[in-house]
């Protein structure tokens, strides 16, 4: 299964890109583990996860290809 990731804010700065794809990821827990391996800085950051443009609050199994967005909080005003 293909996951298309979209990163925002500092997460995109860390990854050096706003979008990339990962293959064979069954669920959001596995996805998080994978990206924290790729970018250890992200493991200590808080961010919200949206699967197919809807926020999720617990591990979510992908039923087919999915779009996942990772959104960090912004404080500036």
């Amino acid at each position: 299964m293909k996951v298309e990731l979209t990163l925002f804010g500092q997460l995109a700065d860390i990854a050096g890109r706003t979008k990339f794809q990962l293959q064979d990821i069954p669920d959001t827990d596995t996805l998080q583990k994978k990206i924290h391996e790729m970018y250890p800085e992200m493991a200590n950051m808080s961010y919200s996860i949206a699967v197919n443009k809807k926020t999720i609050h617990e591990n979510t199994v992908f039923e087919g290809d999915a779009n996942v967005a990772l959104l960090p909080p912004f404080s500036g005003g």
Binding site: S46, L71, P73, G76, G77
Partner: peptide
């Protein structure tokens, strides 16, 4: 519901530090 917990102070820079 979007951000249940505040990030650690050093995690996110404000406008003065990050620029805008």
């Amino acid at each position: 519901d979007l951000f249940p917990l505040a990030p650690a102070d050093h995690e996110v820079l404000n406008c003065a530090e990050a620029g805008v």
